[in-house]
Simulated scan of single mutants.
Amino acid sequence: MPQLPAPAYPADVLARLETDGREIVARYPDSRSALLPLLHLVQSEEGHVTRTGMAFCAEFLGLTTAEVNAVATFYSMYRRKPSGDYQVGVCTNTLCAVMGGDQIFDELKEHLGVGNGETTEDGKVTLEHIECNAACDFAPVVMVNWEFFDNQTPASAKALVDDLRADRPVEPTRGARLCTFKDTARILAGFPDQRPGAVEESGGAGAASLAGLRLAKGESGPTRVVTQRSQSGDEAPGSPADKGAEHLSANDAGERTAASDPANPAEPVHKEGDK
């Protein structure tokens, strides 16, 4: 049975998208190169890439719908079905998984009552497991609309999603303040970030990421504090939890072997010359 044509955008939406689309295309010597940001643009309109959005991209760029569909289905940042205001991604790649990411993901599924890629009934949160986001030194990491929430525990992750669903303000560990997924998609389309102070807050690498660079340059830094966790996965009392603290990975301690290996008790590593 042939598929019905995609419904058209309302006239006012179409006019707005065409204006923004011309601005995007003007950035490139070949209009075809504008497909990725144009897909982000239509995603910012409806919260996911619809058939209508793909048809608009194809017509606007002179491509076939098959060409647009091939790109939209290849990249995971393009959603193909309605999703929440907040995309909560739990890294379950190797290091984050070992450091507790798998447990966080499992407990969030139970806490929210959803599976991977599913959205809560209130339309606030879509939960998914994600691959490495190059933040291994802050494992385990949770991302919300691509903003970092470092050194998470099951308890802190559940508190985070509860705050999101209750519209309480949350602050990423690093980077700019949080915005909705639609707003994030528009920023990824290449339009100015309208969040107050976003440029100043965008920041850079955290202290843990820069430790190796300092050592390579022969620089010495302050004694590093390792975040300790209890058996339940929660941070121990007195752990640095505020944004201004030096957030370091719990696997950053100098040990000869894993403390979890009873056959090889861990012991501190002492450099030559240490007392």
Rank of each mutant, 00 (worst) to 15 (best):
M1N: 11
Q3N: 10
Y9Q: 03
D12F: 06
A15T: 11
G21A: 15
P29M: 04
S31M: 07
S33I: 02
A34Y: 02
V42A: 09
E45K: 05
G62T: 06
V68K: 09
V68Q: 08
N69F: 07
T73D: 03
Q87L: 14
C91V: 14
T94D: 10
L95G: 02
C96T: 05
A97W: 03
V98S: 10
M99C: 13
G101S: 05
F105L: 13
N116I: 02
E121P: 02
D122R: 12
G123I: 07
K124S: 15
I130W: 00
P140R: 07
E147L: 06
D150K: 01
D150N: 08
N151I: 13
Q152D: 04
T153F: 06
P154L: 09
A155W: 00
P172G: 09
G175I: 06
G175M: 07
A176I: 01
K182G: 14
D183K: 12
A185C: 15
R186M: 14
A189P: 13
E201N: 02
A208F: 00
S209R: 04
L210T: 11
A211T: 07
E219D: 14
E219K: 12
S220K: 12
T223I: 12
R229E: 06
Q231A: 15
Q231P: 03
G233A: 03
D234C: 11
P237Q: 11
D242T: 13
G244T: 10
A250Y: 00
A253E: 11
N264D: 03
P265N: 03
P265F: 02
A266R: 03
E267S: 13
E267V: 12
E272R: 12
E272W: 07
